[in-house]
Every structure is written in C-alpha cells, then in structure tokens.
Design a binder for these strands. Structure first.
Lengths: 345, 345
DNA sequence: GTCGGGCGAGAGAGCGCTCTCTCACCTCTC
DNA sequence: GAGAGGTGAGAGAGCGCTCTCTCGCCCGAC
C-alpha cells in the first residue's frame, strides 16, 4: 500500500484535487494554471480560489513528461583530468556563474552545476541532459583537447561554449578578442618605454592562451621589440611565481612583464618584490582578466578587463534562443577587452 | 499529429522499444536497468544488448513521476536584498560550491544553483523544490533576519543550513566555532605584545560576525586588554578600508588589528600602508577565513582558517542522509578553526 | 505420477499532467 | 425562428516509467 488513508490529506494536492474543489474538470484547471485565455472569468476566479485553498503546486515531472521540456539548463565546467578541486577558487568561474545565474533568473530558470574532469564525468554530463534533466547545456572548457563540445554536438544537445573550441566544432560560442587584449598590454608597455619585455603565457593547449601570446608578440614586434622571452604557467599564482623566477634568470634587466592572467601576474609581482625590483618603477607589470585580486594587490594591477559576466549572460541568452527556436543558426559573439590602468604599469 | 513517421526512428528510444528489440516485456527491461536480481542471466545479456543497440537512456521525468524522487538538490544562496550580483565574486561562495559539488558527485548528483535576494526569489526557491525539481535544499544564508530557513522548514522540505540560524529554527546545520577562532587571533596579538588593539567586525545582524566579535573581546579581556575599539564592515574590501580609517582616527597608536574576514583585513592593510604604518612591525594584522586573497596579499595575511570545503561537504552529507532516512534526527556539526601564521602578525 | 513450492517473466494499473477532440450552448444573421 | 458560426468546458488518451499482482513453468518430494 503506497498511500495510507491517514496521510492522504497531507499528500501534495494534484490538479484533480483542485478540479474537485472548484467543481470543474482537470482540463479547466490546467487552462487556468497555464494562463489560457479561453476560460470564463468567473470560472477562472473560482479555480484560483480552489488553488489557493488547496495549496496546489504543479508537479514538474508530470509536466516534463508530457511536453518534453524541463526548463532547466546544465552548466558544465570541464577541467583537465583531476583539476576540479581547485577550480572554484578561481574567481573566474564565480564570475561566469554569476553572469549565467543573473540571466537565467530573469526567466525563472536555474543552472545545474556539473563538474567534468574525467571521461566518465563528461559522459555523465551528456547523459544528464539526455535523460531529460535539462534542455541544454552551457559549456565552460578549460583546456583544448576537451572532447566535451563534440560529445554534446554528437548527442544533438543544444549547447553553447564559453570560449572558442580549439578544434572546429559546429557549436555556438562567446569569446573574447584575446589577441587584441594582449596588444593593448603591449602598447601600454611600449608607451612606457619598456624594451626588455617578457611574458608569462598560459597553457599551450588553450586557444585563449595562445591568442594572447601571439597577439602580444605581434604587437611588440610592431613596436620595435622583435623578441619576447616566454615562460608558461597554468593560470595559478604559484605558476606565475615560478615563471617569473625563470624569466628573471633569463632576462635580468627585464623592464616589462605581461602575464596572461591576474593570478600569474600577482605571482610575478611577489617574485619581483623578493628580488628587490620595484613595480612599476623598475618593472612595469600587466595582468589579464581584471579580477578581484587585481584590485586588491599592492600595487594595484594594471590589467586587461574581460567582461566575463556579460559574456556569460550572453552565452545563456544564446542557449535560450536556441531552445525557443529549434532551428536557430549557430551564433558566435566576440567581446572586446579593455585596458584598465592602475598602478603596476 | 505530434509525431510523424519520418522522425519516429530518431525519437529517443523508450523502454518499450528496448523490450521489443529484446523480445521481452517492458517490466523485464526495467528490472535489468534497475539491477534487479530476479532475472535470468541469458535474458539479462539479451536485454543489455538491446539497450546498447537502441541507445536507450531512461527518462528522468517518467521515473520521478512514479517514485517521487528526483535525485537532485537545490543550493540556495540567500543574500540581503539586491546583493546577489557581487556575491559570486566572494571566494567564500566558490569554496562552498566546490565542497558541495565534490560530495554530491560521489553520488552522481548535482546541485541546482539558486540565488535568493528578494522575497519573491525565496518563495520561488521553496516552490522549486515543492514542484519536485529537487528532493532537498542546501541553504547558505548571509544575513540574520533571513526568513529562508523558516520557509523551508514550514514547507516540510529537507534542508541543511550553512551557519547556525540567527533565530532558533528546527533545522540541521554546520557551523564554525567562531568565538574560538577569534580567541585564537586575540591570543596571537597578545602574545606579540599588542596592547592597543582594535577590531573590524562584520554586520551586526550576522550571528557569525557577533560571535567573532564577542569571542575576540572576551579573549582580549582575559589577556588584560579590557577595551577594544570596534568598527563594523560588511565583509567587502572597501568596507574594511573605511573601518580602518575610522579606527585609525579613534586609536592613533593602534598596534594590533583583528578583522572578521580576509577581505576587510586587506582593506585595512591598504589603509595602514597609506598611513605609513608598517605591517607587522608597527601594527599586527589578523584576518579570518584563510581565503585565496590572504595568501596573495603583501605581506601575506596571518588569518584564521575555516575549513569551508569540509563544512560544505558535510552539509551535503547531512542532507543526503536525511533524504535516505526520512526520520533522521536534526544534526548540527561545529568545526574548529585554526590559526594560520603568515607575515602580517 | 501428482502435488507443492519457488523463481522468473508478463500484464496492467497508475504517477500528474497536457492537449486534442468533441460537444453543448449561446449569439448573430437572414 | 432556424441554421451557421463561434466560444468555452469536459472526456480521455497518452507521456515513459515502476511496481504489484498474477501466472507459468520447472524442480523436488512424497
């Protein structure tokens, strides 16, 4: 016996209960709940009252079962294998999440957060949507070989990517003009008269990192600095420290540093201080992202601002459009970065 | 016509399709899918093959409709009205999210993220669960008058709170021994010989903030410093700057500062530097949280570590236990903070 | 050889909702 | 005043699954 008489009264009320209370049919209650116009005003208010008194609330599963729509989206954050743990300490993801949430809540939707840092997780993420837990997915990928975009496309799931895929995949995305941002940094350094310039690049398998590096190199070359010493980091403060240590050994008279994100710039800052270099007097330093830490460091970091929240909002908007119109075309939007001048350069 | 013959083949396969392909009944396929033991091995493999070839994947909505379980939980972050936008920039929430995700994914579950910074949002969060979108909720509340815990309890929804509720509510929670943490800071300052001590407290409507303040005052008194000047902030860097400015005016010969979180400590640090005070030589400074920024500031912040990820994991664990056993008793777990000595004190 | 017991498989009734189809009634037109 | 047209409400069939109930079959025991 699944349901005893005793708790029948405290069972969540169904459409049927409301219909009985209002003395109408289930269909009519459904019409009222869904705002159909073809219902008599008197009957409507009668039903509304019944809904009120019964405390009725529609059952999402039953609805979904009928019309195939869940009204939910998955937010999948895909790191390289095993990297998930520290992911959420990076303010970058907080900003993405914030932008996504802000856009979705205007439509009373909410993202389901999934971490995927193994093949099993990635399959799980796809299956999650295939099971009908969500109508589509927002994909944030942190490395290039990432099979995630392809998996979603192959499964025919509406999805939008944060950042251009490393290999061509027919999928919508939002991205930043990374090379242009790096050029902004290069120009700033050149304008300050820096000639012995080095850069801390991001992981080589990340298109964004490579774009920034190439954009920086090209712009410096334009400004008469043909060679720029490069060290790679992985976007953490620690890797920035290590990279700066190497660069300082390779180019002792360095006078300008461009780091591919703020965290690495802060690591570089620390090492420069430890070596008695004053920033910006001895060495000018520019980061990338305009994240919270950039505002909090001493000196405050000059950096390239990336409108992450706006990009995330747009990513969500593109997905919702796609969900509304099955045949919406692929969309890609590239945002422009800006130079934010503070104290470090 | 809801379904044309043409796309019948590309429709997602159902149990029925698998049953037909395997030449068995729907019930048998269901048994295999759900791992029932009472099924003949030969038949089992036959069904498994059919599942493989059809690409069958269970429909979550249909399952939920039958057994009333969604296998999802809501993660509700409740700020004071209108505060949501900057919420995600605070690394604190990233850490909570990370801990929750880490625990849930071990059970193949995923949190749905909801922001609630208005009465409407809060009701929406409750309704979200009531509609059967989630089985329970994890509540992170950032201010005291928050009606959210009461709303969930009143609706009979299994929920666990991060931080003790400001007013008594029969609900499980995890929390930190805030007063003990503050006492750790007080002892450290006293041990260094600080006598002119001030503190930057958090919002007066937050139990955690008051506990830290009271704990600090009591401990300082024990150490022979009966009076401590207090300024209130709201946990942002800016409010820390402002509070420190006030305190510096009130107690010009200050030699020790305890801030109720790292962000405010960093604001204080900035102001102290601007006033030519050396940290830690002139003024010793201690923060709270041991967040990323504490590690990145110059000098690195001595702080009180709060095992946020562990607390979040435990919060999730308590909720899952409750979901498994309807009548699980209320549980509250209080974690111990630790002093992390770096450079600022 | 017959009967009882147990195991494994099928039949079928829902879960709560939406949506189409049908029908009743009411108004307008000639 | 009768037929046409339109509007609003009800009946009922599913959506895809789980779970109980029933039944068939095979085995062992007497």
């Amino acid at each position: 016996m699944r349901q005893t008489r005793a708790d029948a009264s405290r069972r969540t009320p169904t459409l049927e209960d409301v219909a009985r209370a209002a003395g109408v049919s289930r269909a009519t209650v459904s019409r009222v709940v869904n705002g159909s116009t073809t219902v008599d005003p008197r009957m409507r208010s009668q039903v509304a009252k019944a809904i009120e008194t019964t405390g009725y609330i529609p059952n999402a599963a039953a609805r979904t079962l009928v019309n195939g729509r869940t009204g939910a989206v998955a937010l999948v954050i895909s790191g390289s294998d095993g990297s998930a743990d520290q992911l959420f300490r990076d303010p970058f993801f907080g900003r993405i999440t914030g932008g996504v949430v802000r856009h979705l809540r205007s439509r009373s939707m909410h993202p389901t957060l999934m971490l995927a840092d193994s093949d099993q997780d990635r399959q799980e993420a796809v299956d999650f949507v295939r099971r009908g837990n969500a109508d589509g997915a927002l994909l944030v990928s942190t490395h290039a070989g990432d099979p995630l975009p392809r998996l979603f496309v192959a499964a025919g799931i509406p999805a939008v990517l944060f950042a251009r895929p490393a290999v061509p995949v027919p999928i919508s995305f939002v991205d930043l003009a990374h090379a242009a941002g790096a050029a902004l940094a290069a120009d700033r350094l050149a304008d300050r008269g820096c000639r012995r310039v080095v850069t801390i690049a991001g992981p080589a398998d990340l298109p964004a990192a490579n774009d920034r590096l190439a954009g920086f190199q090209r712009a410096m070359e334009r400004r008469g600095v043909p060679y720029v010493e490069v060290a790679r980091g992985n976007f953490t403060t620690e890797s920035g420290e290590q990279a700066m240590t190497e660069l300082l050994a390779a180019v002792p008279d360095v006078d300008g540093v461009f780091a591919a994100n703020d965290l690495m710039a802060i690591g570089a800052l620390r090492v420069l201080h430890e070596h008695g270099r004053s920033v910006p007097d001895d060495v000018a330093l520019i980061g990338f992202d305009d994240s919270e830490p950039a505002r909090m460091s001493r000196p405050r970091l000059t950096t390239i601002s990336q409108p992450v929240e706006k990009m995330a909002e747009r990513m969500a908007a593109i997905l919702l459009d796609r969900l509304d119109a099955e045949d919406a075309p692929l969309t890609s939007v590239v945002f422009d970065p800006e130079l934010v001048v503070r104290e470090s350069a």
